[in-house]
Design a binder for these strands. Structure first.
Lengths: 199, 199
DNA sequence: GATATAATTAGATGTATATCTAACTATTAA
DNA sequence: TTAATAGTTAGATATACATCTAATTATATC
């Protein structure tokens, strides 16, 4: 999973000792383990520990000469990780693909399986994605710009399901509708919950 | 301390749940707490917990409407943190200032206090920075390019201090000298331990 | 004032991890 | 082969923190 790599990148950099090690290496010089331990006032095993983490994240490279292991910074990987992280958070690259079609097959199957032939909702789907599909399907039947009283809205929902209270709450919860002083109104569709970017 | 801010930035991003929250917010939409909790399959307190961390790192902003708190991503700060982190690691900006003068006052005082009038080292400084100053002072008296036998080097060090074994080891440890088959040679001064970037 | 809803705080629990000392391994050199 | 040196591994300890449930606070509405 992509996410874990990003997490590991930031874990590697979220410790003051490791940052200080990188700082010591940032001039490009090589420094060996014992020298690091002494400079940082740490034991050798602790240096080994941090070196392993930095190596796993490809932030340093190592060279052996006799008994001594010299560390050197790997700046390209540090920069690359930073960029990958930003791209991930801002969803560069994957955004376009997932923007469209929230799984049309799923939508079809939910409409087929959860709604009876007479249009009523058999049961409220428990699974998150499916529930949203059912909610959206019903919300689309409401008139944009119209202000509904609670009573009117209950009546509307009752066309589909007896448990209007739950569904009314879900409409609010997932931002299909907005409530003010017991008056209900459809939100603009841009605000309707999106599930494409959940992953 | 500057270091802590960088650590906190990466801590904020080193948890999969928080990354998923940012991912949900990355389209610029607002999402409120309960919706986040449901989407991520977490309890509301857990969302509060993560929201607090993200807010501390200025990665999200919050807006209250009635009882509900809506979160929105703060992309500028996420990018700014990334840049600040790289600048810190690669020591942009501070590098020039600290490049010079490893604390000339300290150097003077060490040379004055630890070396006698006849030039001998009274005692090996225990404090790291001071020890390096004393070592460097002595190392500078060695001839670059010259290969010393262990005996010769011991004699040289003895000019300064009886404990030539310790000082010889320190010369190696801190990369003032290099040893191969009992032959000792001065390292190029670029390799001499630098302390400017320890902080 | 009473009730409902959203969020926060408190406290418990389990896991992750930074650090140390002691023991061990690997490499070099006498 | 033995001794010395650098590094690693094992195990202990303490702290950080992600998560939950239960109780509390804050806001809005009747």
């Amino acid at each position: 999973m992509q996410l874990d790599k990003i997490v590991n990148y930031h874990k590697a950099l979220s410790d003051p000792t490791r940052l200080r090690i990188l700082l010591l290496l940032c001039k490009g010089e090589e420094i060996h383990g014992q020298a690091l331990a002494e400079r940082l006032n740490l034991s050798q095993p602790t240096v080994t520990h941090h070196a392993a983490k930095l190596r796993e994240a490809a932030m340093i490279t190592e060279r052996r000469d006799k008994n001594t292991i010299y560390f050197r910074m790997n700046p390209e990987f540090i920069r690359a990780g930073s960029e990958a992280s930003l791209n991930f958070i801002f969803s560069k690259g994957t955004q376009e693909m997932e923007q469209e079609s929230p799984d049309d097959n799923l939508k079809e199957s939910v409409l087929r399986n959860f709604f009876a032939k007479d249009g009523r909702l058999r049961q409220i789907p428990a699974q998150y994605k499916k529930k949203l599909i059912a909610l959206q399907f019903m919300a689309e039947k409401l008139a944009p710009g119209t202000v509904y009283s609670e009573k009117e809205l209950n009546e509307f929902i009752r066309q589909y399901h007896e448990d209007y209270a739950t569904i009314r709450r879900e409409f609010i919860m997932h931002q299909f509708m907005y409530r003010e002083h017991d008056k209900y109104e459809l939100n603009p569709t841009e605000m309707w919950t999106r599930w494409e970017n959940v992953r």
